[in-house]
Design a protein around this nucleic acid. Structure first.
Ligand code: MN
Ligand code: MN
Ligand code: ZN
Ligand code: ZN
Lengths: 130, 130
DNA sequence: ATTCTTATTGCAAATGGTTCTCAATAAGCA
DNA sequence: TGCTTATTGAGAACCATTTGCAATAAGAAT
């Protein structure tokens, strides 16, 4: 396998992403790192996000709910996402005992489930009141 | 509100989608109806899928896992989807007691959850053996 | 330190699923 | 049977993401 290099771009992208508790898009991450990397390209953001996801350093949320943009998560500890079908808001919730139950149930189907990858789509408080 | 018309296209798209137990893409649905609607346009497929989803007649699966295409489900009875992170395979599973538990847990967050919209991402049998 | 290899970058163009525009068609009420 | 207008077909537009390529720079070798 080929060597990997620790670039300024890669380092800063990961740092910024870990610092926030939101789930920004590639474009938003681009804006976040711009002050530190004035010449960075959006393609570099995409390439590094892909790299970091493959390394297991970040999560890629591929549910295009409201909009068609992917979102990224710098926090990889097991948790679930509530995604509002209407406004797209993403809420982190910690894993409950349910996960274990699911895993057992899912074994029947030969499915291996990572707790981090259960997404629950519904309506957020604000949206369900309209 | 404006009236809706029952067109040949809309009728056939829904019929075909209900008949299969897979989760086809717009393009695949286009191919499915082509024998019956030789002049149909892909735009018409998209427009009707959007219409039917808004009516609650079908489900739109917006998880672009492997590929970036949406998939559609003609079966709206409550069930969950197992989606393979690797090959993209989608498996239907019936709702277990878990759903109820989730709902209670989720009330804390002010989230309204539709059982049909819990997607579980993992690895299918085939892919987890590689 | 300096050289060298090649992973990575910035820029621009390409890609591809989906949406939009608009004139023509046809569903279905009067 | 006419009339209104929702819907269609064809193609262009959109836009998030990916890719090609020459220039740059990480970091191993010297
Ligand atoms: Mn999260
Ligand atoms: Mn299904
Ligand atoms: Zn909302
Ligand atoms: Zn698989």
């Amino acid at each position: 396998m080929q060597q990997t290099r620790q670039t300024k771009q890669r380092k800063i992208i990961l740092e910024k992403l870990r610092k926030v508790h939101t789930h920004p898009t590639a474009e938003e991450i681009f804006q976040m790192v711009l002050p530190l990397l004035p010449k960075v390209s959006l393609a570099t953001i995409y390439r590094n996000l892909e790299f970091l996801e493959k390394q297991g350093e970040i999560l890629k949320l591929e549910h295009k709910n409201n909009e068609s943009k992917n979102r990224y998560d710098g926090h990889t500890e097991p948790h679930r996402h509530l995604i509002c079908k209407k406004c797209g808001e993403i809420v982190d919730i910690s894993c409950c005992c349910c996960c274990q139950m699911n895993k057992k149930d899912l074994a029947k189907y030969g499915f291996t489930v990572d707790d981090g990858f259960i997404e629950i789509l519904g309506l957020c408080k604000k949206c369900s009141h309209k």
